Simulated scan of single mutants.
Amino acid sequence: MIVGGGIGGLAAALGIARAGHEVMVLERNDRFAELGAGIQLAPNGIAALDRLGLGAMVRERAVHIDHLRFMDGVTGEHVVSMPLTEDYRRRFGNPYVVVHRGELHRMLYAACLASPGVRLRAGAAVTAYDQDDTGTTVVLKTGERISGDAVIGADGIRSAIRRQLVGDGEPRVSGITVYRCLIPIDVVPDELRWNAVTWWAGPKCHFVHYAIAGGRYLNLAASSDDAATQPVAGVPVEKQLVQILFAGLDAAPRQLLALGEDWKAWVLVDRDPVDNWTDGRVTLLGDAAHPMLHYAAQGACQALEDAVLLGDLLDCSTAELVRRFDRYSHERRERTAAVQRVSRESIELWHPAGTEAKARNDMLSSMSATQLHDHVAWMHGARYFGGALLTGGASG
């Protein structure tokens, strides 16, 4: 039983069904859908989707990015770009792409519908679990109990399964508010239509944009280090507020921000890494296991890696489930904790001012393409094959 029907939960369902198990996915909402806009997929995420049989479809529908482009948001200076074309793709075995989050979710959902080993049930909010030596039971909000061999909690950062298994309370509030919207690419000036994920870094703020939905829309995400203390998600805000908050940026990013309509705000949250997220026949996946800020653009990729490794490890009898879950947690915890930490620490790269910003620019602009690729190789180049993790190297 997989609790949660988001990207990670559906991917895990595919991987585990391919290993020969019957899987039921329990989604708390009335329908299976994914909120949000753009999602970045590095080569490690594409490699995981290949293992699930969806890599070719994602490559066909996604926008293939040519550069990660870092700009000084105050001066408008182009600081450095990491090329993502020939050398990058050859080294890591796949492109770097962006796709609409809902589109990726629909691909996974359709694959699950087509899989004879996967059953999907919406409107099934899980509140707790029980287990013994022979199996597990989840308890729904309605009081209904559903039994099976094992439980995977893929129910997000406020996971009910994690609350019982780890018991670490509410998520950590980052103190950063991000404002998001989509604009039609037709309204974007030609000189700003870069085939890049672009960061404009400013004092205690930064602004990211990239094309999604086959290049039809530009995804805008502007982050403000405003010491927010209360988490909010998807709250509508006036466009004038966004323009005021980022008025200190250069003319080009302000021009793009001014085009935005229907802005919504999220206060970012995450959690500290934990040493173990497995309890007997129960384990966690994705944001339920290792929620991270989005600044390393690895949240979905790490959930997909979880799903593929679980599918590999669960090619076993039910008698082996407990041991395989322990192995899964052991193999994933160090890597995912490192990505969680990098996601937090990257704020120090985006948000300095004055002499610290100049020192950052000098450091980044001195790096060659190979050095930049070396810097991300441990994340972008990690791939799973048959349960073995291979990193770096020419083959990825």
Rank of each mutant, 00 (worst) to 15 (best):
T85V: 11
V282G: 03
G143Y: 12
E305N: 09
A114W: 07
V74W: 00
Y179E: 02
Q230F: 09
G55I: 05
V74A: 10
R31L: 13
G76N: 12
A125K: 13
D155R: 08
Y328D: 08
N29K: 11
A227I: 02
C181H: 04
H209I: 01
Y179F: 15
D250C: 07
A42Y: 06
L84Q: 07
Y210D: 07
A11I: 05
A196Q: 05
L310M: 10
I161H: 04
I176F: 03
M1T: 14
L241D: 12
E331V: 09
T355D: 15
M1S: 13
D155H: 07
S81H: 13
T134H: 15
F325C: 09
K358S: 14
I152Y: 05
L285S: 04
V99A: 01
T198C: 10
K358V: 15
A110G: 05
A369Q: 12
D312N: 14
G393R: 06
L372Y: 04
L220T: 06
R327W: 09
W200Q: 01
D226C: 13
V98F: 02
N44D: 08
A128C: 12
A297L: 04
R91N: 11
D275K: 02
I46S: 06
M57D: 15
R172V: 15
K264W: 10
E261Y: 00
M292R: 00
L349Y: 05
F325L: 13
M1N: 10
E238L: 04
M82A: 13
I152W: 07
D315L: 12
L165R: 02
T75A: 15
D149R: 07
C181N: 13
L68D: 05
Q298V: 05
I65Q: 09
H100A: 04
E261R: 08
D312V: 03
P95Y: 02
D374H: 04
W277Y: 13
C181I: 09
T318G: 11
N195M: 11
A307R: 00
